[in-house]
Amino acid sequence: MEKYVEKQDIDLTVTTKGQRFRSKYLTWKFAATFFGNLFAYVLTIGIAFVIVYPLLRRVGNAFKPVEEFYDSSVVYFPRNPTFDVIRQAYRRLNVSTVGVTSFILALTIGFLQTAISTLAGYGFARFQFRGSKVLFALVILTLVVPPQTILIPIFLRFRFMDAFGIITAIFGKPINMIDTYGPQIMLALTGLGWKNGLYIYMLRQYFRGIPRVLEEAAYIDGAKTFRAFFTIMLPSAVPMMLTVFLFSFSWQWTDSFYSGTFLIKKGLLATSIKWITHKNELMQFNLQQTAILLIILPLILLFIITQRYFVEGIERSGIVG
């Protein structure tokens, strides 16, 4: 479209420098692009600032010594920056123990959710078995049902865990799975984890976008269903799987909904913030905010490295197609 218009605009008879300048810059088209871009920049950069501002503000606060909190002349940049607050917050978070378990749990949940969603997404995209439509409608239902609605039954189920009365028959009473990692892992394994319906939907759409011919060629070459899946389809779905894994990992990393319910005494990084206390209220607030900053710092780094997958993953997920 643009090329077509540009060809019309350039006057080939122009020779002198001034005329060339005029024909290039003093045109309606140039003015429209210029002011359009100016308008777009003012708006988008302003809004991007609103997004980044709270983060920058916290970064500034994290380096402030205690006295400067009471000094109203210090707003953004600390006058005598120290690492005191950061060091304290880091120590209170128990990064060496709680941090490691949080990381391992987030990794595990990420892997499980990605694997289960990939299998299910492929199953829904390529096989029309009996009841597949009903089952997929149920997957969508898990998205639409607020997690609050099924939280209490699920909590009580894991609080008094029993498999068809077998456990009660052997041990005399059901197992208490609260404060173990069991509930979250079991939910991830059965495709009911945090926002799992969304991942299944994304992967299903993605698989539907891959031409069927690829697998048919594999079938003709003698591959069976699972061989075709693992050697042909899986490699071509890696970008989407990575996207899902990144989402799953980072949402588990900051999750306080399931983690706060199933791990009451045992803390994860995300749920142990409220235990950071200080006799000075302002200091406590600042410590907690700095702790959050420390927790999301790895996520920000991860996001900067992998933003291509995050952004393109959503775009190519076929939610649109």
């Binding site: 289960i116 299998l119 299910a120 492929y122 199953g123 829904f124 390529r126 096989f127 029309q128 078995f129 597949s132 089952l135 149920l138 997957v139 898990t142 099924i150 699920i154 189920r157 079991m186 939910l187 394994l189 059965t190 495709g191 009911l192 299944i200 269903t225 699972f226």
Partner: peptide, 20 residues
């Protein structure tokens, strides 16, 4: 031919029947 589909969505079926 579509039967293997059940295997792919088996975890989901278990989750629905036993938990959801």
């Amino acid at each position: 031919r579509n039967l293997p589909g059940y295997l792919f969505v088996l975890p989901i079926i278990i989750g629905f029947v036993l938990i959801f």
